[in-house]
């Protein structure tokens, strides 16, 4: 235990922890997006998928607990590292210019904070339905919980859709640096792999953004059919 703490609080161990937890989050994001894209398959498909997930409470809770642990470790470790890093340069430069770094790589904590705020809102919105308690009563023709209507009605509000789009773009910025960075942090990079990993990082981050923003954008453009259900206040 002591050994583990020593490793995880060392500079490289802490980065390996960031990378490992980050990787878990990325894998989840991929699964989450693929699942949700069933929105485009219509209410039957999406609501069926949601019901299928909830019919496996054990799997659901293992995934949920794993995600909570990964998110907590990732965020706590990032706060600790950011504080240490700020302390490592107590006097700022009058003039300091970036050389090889990117906007995304320099602003990981900032984009991370936006993502954290967004995830909190997202959970309150769709998982706990605290922002719109009326959603809880939505039922589709088969008597299942109507996820489809909840999503479509939410994203019909340009404010909500806009917030999702902005947050997802910033998440994309986080991931653009993060995915490639993971390889280096875990010592899996090599000069040969470097261009491939960079391209893959951009591609996967781009794919995750596009796939996810496609949903609010399609609803805003009226490309996704509306169904019955509650009207938003």
């Amino acid at each position: 235990m002591r050994w583990l703490m020593n490793v995880l609080t060392s500079s490289i161990g802490a980065k390996a922890l960031m990378a490992a937890t980050g990787l878990i989050l990325v894998l989840f994001l991929v699964g989450h997006m693929v699942g949700n894209l069933q929105l485009f398959g219509g209410p039957d498909m999406l609501n069926g998928y949601a019901e299928f997930l909830h019919s496996k409470p054990l799997v659901l809770w293992v995934v949920r607990l794993g995600m909570i642990a990964a998110v907590l470790l990732h965020i706590l470790s990032s706060i600790r590292l950011t504080l240490l890093n700020n302390r490592a340069r107590p006097t700022a430069y009058k003039l300091k210019r970036p050389i090889s770094s990117t906007f995304a790589s320099r602003n990981m904590f900032l984009t991370g904070l936006v993502v954290a705020a967004f995830v909190t809102y997202h959970l309150l919105h769709f998982t706990f339905r605290a922002t719109h308690p009326a959603f809880a009563t939505l039922k589709d023709a088969h008597g299942r919980f109507d996820v489809y209507s909840m999503v479509v009605q939410s994203f019909s509000d340009p404010l909500i859709a806009g917030a999702y789009i902005v947050a997802l773009v910033l998440l994309g910025l986080h991931l653009w640096h993060a995915i490639g960075s993971t390889f280096q942090s875990l010592g899996l990079m090599s000069p040969k792999l470097q261009p491939i990993v960079s391209a893959m990082s951009l591609a996967l981050a781009g794919l995750l953004v596009l796939g996810n923003v496609a949903m609010p954008i399609a609803v805003l453009l009226g490309l996704v059919a509306r169904t019955q259900g509650v009207t938003l206040p």
Partner: peptide, 27 residues
């Protein structure tokens, strides 16, 4: 501080020490 893989070090290094050595040290 701790490395966040931004690589300004590599760009600033007068001797062009490449980032690959950081990767190898991590490993």
């Amino acid at each position: 501080g701790n490395c966040t893989n931004t690589y300004d070090c590599e760009g600033a290094c007068p001797k062009q020490i490449p980032r690959r050595f950081i990767n190898e040290m991590n490993r």
